[in-house]
């Protein structure tokens, strides 16, 4: 039985639906992964405030550019310096 009443009620039932919002326009610099240096260690992921970093099906770390705000923590913390911050094209 559904617990959701047919009422306008200030509850959000769709868990985690902020993922539908794109925050890419917050960004002036974008992180770019240099593949040959990346070891997919996930350090960038654990320090990402969003998270806007994920592993693809092949196990490679990727940036979610819809949600990356360009803070630069990943580039700063990458142990292999495999991430560079690149100015967005205006």
């Amino acid at each position: 039985m559904s617990r959701r009443p047919e009422l306008l009620i200030p509850i959000v039932f769709e868990a985690g639906n902020t993922s539908l919002r794109k925050v890419a326009n917050w960004r002036s610099n974008r992180p770019v992964i240099e593949r040959r240096l990346c070891t997919n260690c996930l350090i960038c992921w654990i320090y990402c405030p969003e998270p806007a970093i994920y592993m693809d099906n092949a196990g490679n770390v990727q940036i979610d550019y819809d949600h990356c705000k360009g803070c630069g923590i990943c580039a700063e913390e990458c142990p292999r310096k495999a991430i560079k911050m690149v100015m967005e094209n205006v």
Binding site: L42, I43, P51
Partner: peptide, 27 residues
């Protein structure tokens, strides 16, 4: 880190400032 991967409790798209330490901690 793989012990933690895939257990995300917070979704992206929230309105925290760039580089917010609180959201990293909460994640």
């Amino acid at each position: 880190l793989l012990d933690l991967y895939g257990r995300e409790g917070l979704s992206p798209g929230h309105s925290a400032c760039q580089g917010c330490g609180a959201t990293i901690a909460v994640r």
